[in-house]
Amino acid sequence: MRYLRLIKYFMLSSAQADLAYRANFAIGLLNSLLNLIVGVLGLAVLFSQVNTLNGWTFASTLALLGVYLTISALRGWFIGPSLEVLAGIEGDVWSGRFDFTLLRPINTQFFVSVRQWNWFALIDLALGLGAIGVATVQSGGAQPLSFLVAATASVAVLYAILLIFTALVFWSPGLLFTWVFDAIMQLARYPIGIYPGWLQFVLTWIIPVAIMTTIPATALTGDIQPMSLMGGVALAVILFIAASVLFRLGVRRYNSASS
């Protein structure tokens, strides 16, 4: 309960900061709309030339894009901004401000994961859910329950991967691991089958971004296998534990910076 109350306070204080820059709302709205328009137009160009892409129709690829946008929006809402404070350029680890984080009387991993909320990300969330809605109506046969389970597992996988990339900062503060991850995550906008074998292997087993979007998207279009749903959940649990362990090891390595 105490932790829920803390999340509320973090949310409120972030909202206050966001509200101070109200002009940013218009820019945020424009950015989100552009992101959606660019994605949908990209699909429109592609499907004006072909009917299916490696077995994926326009509706199922749109579902995939919707899932990608939704998950990215959840990331941009709090996971990304919170972890960025820790590991970004001039972040806490870099500058040594992490000392003050360690001193707080709450779980460190909890605190660094939820301390910053970007409320403009809710625009992205609405647009992503909109794309999912349109795709679902077009294809029919969605399995809402499987989708919710799969989507939750995906967000957990994303959180765990981001935490792992963030924790690497304790070993090498100069490198921008999360930027590398950002770039790789874009590959999940399209069905994994279009990539060559070695890249599919990387995107499934090493940095499982493809799983994050593919499993929920197949739940939306109705041809999800029970095995892949369970696999997704198992992966989420394993990665979450691994990331927490790695984060703890990283924190133990931390030996402050400057004065």
């Binding site: 990209g42 592609l46 030339q49 072909v50 892409l53 490696n54 100069g174 490198l175 921008l176 930027w179 590398v180 950002d182 770039a183 790789i184 874009q186 590959l187 906008r189 399209y190 089958g193 279009i194 990539y195 060559p196 890249l199």
Partner: peptide, 30 residues
């Protein structure tokens, strides 16, 4: 290393569409 990461990020969108179009044009040239 900062610029390598930037350059890597800029390479990704064209790379995605490289794979999209090579897959799409496999059955017949587009």
């Amino acid at each position: 290393s900062f610029f390598f990461v930037l350059a890597f990020g800029w390479m990704i969108p064209p790379l995605i569409y490289l794979f999209v179009w090579t897959t799409a044009s496999e059955p017949a040239p587009i």
